[in-house]
Design a protein around this nucleic acid. Sequence first.
RNA 1: GGUGCGGUAGCCAAGUGGCCAGGCAACGGUUUGCAAAACCGUGAUACGUGGGUUCAAAUCCCAUCCGCACCUCCA
Length: 551
Amino acid sequence: MSFHLHDSLTDARIPLPERKPGETSLYVCGPTVYGLIHVGNARPAVVFDTLVRHLRAQGRKVTYVRNYTDVDDKIIAAAEASGEDPRALAERFVEAYRADIRALGCLTPDAEPRVSDTIPEIVAHIEALVAREVAYSTPDGDVYYDVARFPEYGKLSKRGALGQKGEFGRGKAGEGKRSEHDFALWKASRPGEPGSVRWASPWGEGRPGWHIECSAMAHKHLGPAFDLHGGGMDLKFPHHENEIAQSEPVHGAPFARAWMHNGFIELDVLGHADFDEATVGTIRGLLERDPDLGKISKSDRARLEALQARERDAGGLTDEERALQALFSRKVRFAEVFVLRNLCARVDPQAVRYWILGTHYRAPLGFEVAERDGAVHLPALEQAEKRVEYLHESYVRLAARAALLGEQGPAGAEAKHFAQHRRDFDDALDDDLNTGLTQEPVARIFERANRLCDVKKPAPGDLRAAREAMAHVSRVLGVAELPPEGFFRRVTARRLKARGLVEGQVQGLVTQRENARASKDFARADALRAELVSLGIEVRDSPQGTTWRAV
RNA sequence: GGUGCGGUAGCCAAGUGGCCAGGCAACGGUUUGCAAAACCGUGAUACGUGGGUUCAAAUCCCAUCCGCACCUCCA
């Protein structure tokens, strides 16, 4: 099989487009760097990283470009609020983004262009659009794209033609715009905006609008037309629609051959909450009147604090206010764990990656936060972490076996099975990156490898096949591919800390137990084990000695 | 109103006509001084609902309910 994908432009399953045989050019919309990212932002990073890993493992040459939008209204607003320079703030969050997704095992793209170093190309691109009269400038020094001049506008988001039922949105006309649908290519600087976000242009000082940067960066790094464009579902309209509109009139060629859009990570603010029935009923009523209440918003904390203050001052709340208070307080906790960095303090980043890849990239992924007695649990993530531990442990076990017995030599009956599982794994990914479907071949590989470890005299070639199959799936999924010691250290440290334990303390008890066992004092050994278990420590005895792990 | 995604066993999750997904949790076993890990085995009338097509439907058709998202700056 070869790679096929669901193209969101045509909504058809198509073979991987390749403008050059054996090569793939991929552009993915990166973050607007105005704050720490949340898990939702991490999904496209992980998904497209996995795509790149898979295509490369298949021997393709992939050019992967992912941008940073480092000049933008939101960045300027955030900088104003913090009294920082917008570019400095953006730089800080570029670094934060890099660190966050590196922890998720994402490889560095071949190019990571920024708006701030693509300004000449952006200006030239806008000039080309103006020259072709698909864009116009206003007396204020803004430049707008004239949507009416691009008959194919809407072909990606499939919203029908302008002036028809169901057309685009609720944009506002005015401010020099010819049509409410027109969007800004260039924005004249407003008084008070720092010099670091002002650039000279034929239309006066200003900065690029949103959308144009991606067209310019994609063309700069991948040429006038390229194979694949990726990003989140929400970017389909208007962002990607506008990229197409900006690019195709200039180059007279299709922009990207095919589009891949990942689904959202969804939060259910009521699910798995430990609210009582009356509270849930009241909240449901409130949500019916105002569905936006269910969304995580910046004002949640302020509204929660207002309610708390009111409770103090007025000496009580109505049932409705009490329900609101419960809801806001949950949303605040929710927003906290949704931030990737905070999430990764609760479960290992490797588990986050494995969890994301457990679901097909186009399907919605539910972010489940359970609360029991006020404590936050992440059942799906915790399950993923267990699985990732299993993968690491299995690899360690097999590698030790292979090191002891050697891998050089003929294969036995097992090698062909590993080869088959590997093919199943590759086929699953070839099928529109069906990472969920890889779970079966992965399970078979690791289970078979563990079985091989129990065999007295395994064929060296089988051990090699097992190790190579494990390494292959780890490398492509980006899970359990690094030396496992780091993973175990990280997980152990986190769990010990959560229980308020220090390693020496645990090791002391384990040593005492070992001594007891050595003197065949099993009663004492078992008592010590029970004590360790109550601390969340699992002890493992083996012929090579005793080890322990935090659970 | 427009556009798209989804509803599969206790939970997560593949699956577009016939055969088994897979994982977690549960239970039994091998192993172990006892455990843990690993492996082996066992599940359940699983396909939102109502009709229809077919020898055969989670899968195709019609209707319908529910959830989520986007529709000018959220991945």
